[in-house]
């Protein structure tokens, strides 16, 4: 019997352990967005309030968060108070009301406060499809030229804002300032 064969089980165990340990911190449900670096897709949809029609040109001018939400989405309710807080701090937030009932959306905004500057009513989900949305809430960060720079899937809370979105947003604001 050769000596080195006795080491094989230990080596295999260590190899598997390394991969399993790494697996603990993987988030397979967070896909990298294919939209990063691309312009915000073209659309022509009504606002949730129904008072005007919106196109991608309306998003250009200032860096902003574009938050995909719906009243059917429980996590959206979780993140809503934090969006209100961000809006109060002066962060520009636009909404995409994704595959929702418009009356329910209006009631939601009346009940829980409206943090959105513009709110796009995407009842058919066509804009969501062009954005590569696969679940709400999703939050895109666009620059002053309307280019998508970052996407966060899931609830935006204080930690996500502080660690991921805030530095990027601030960077874009500085970039936009001449």
């Amino acid at each position: 019997m050769k000596r080195w064969i006795m080491v094989v089980p230990l080596a295999v165990f260590l190899l598997v352990a390394v991969f399993l340990y790494k697996g603990l911190f993987l988030k397979p449900d967070e896909l990298p967005s294919a939209m990063i670096g691309k312009p915000f897709p073209a659309f022509a949809l009504a606002s949730v309030q129904g008072d005007r029609s919106l196109t991608q040109a309306d998003l250009i001018g200032r860096p902003a968060l574009v938050n995909v939400w719906g009243t059917w989405c429980p996590s959206c309710k979780v993140e809503h108070p934090y969006l209100n807080q961000l809006a109060e701090q002066g962060v520009v937030i636009h909404g995409v009301n994704y595959k929702d009932d418009n009356a329910a959306a209006l009631k939601w905004l009346a009940d829980f406060h409206n943090p959105y500057q513009l709110n796009i009513a995407d009842q058919q989900g066509s804009l969501g499809l062009d954005l590569g949305v696969y679940g709400a809430p999703e939050t895109f960060l666009i620059d002053a030229n309307g280019i998508i720079r970052y996407k966060h899937v899931g609830v935006v809370d204080a930690t996500v804002w502080r660690e991921q979105l805030a530095p990027l947003y601030q960077g874009l604001v500085d970039e936009a300032r001449p």
Partner: peptide
């Protein structure tokens, strides 16, 4: 599909 959702 790949344009929107990536190679995934």
């Amino acid at each position: 599909m790949v344009d929107r959702y990536g190679d995934f």
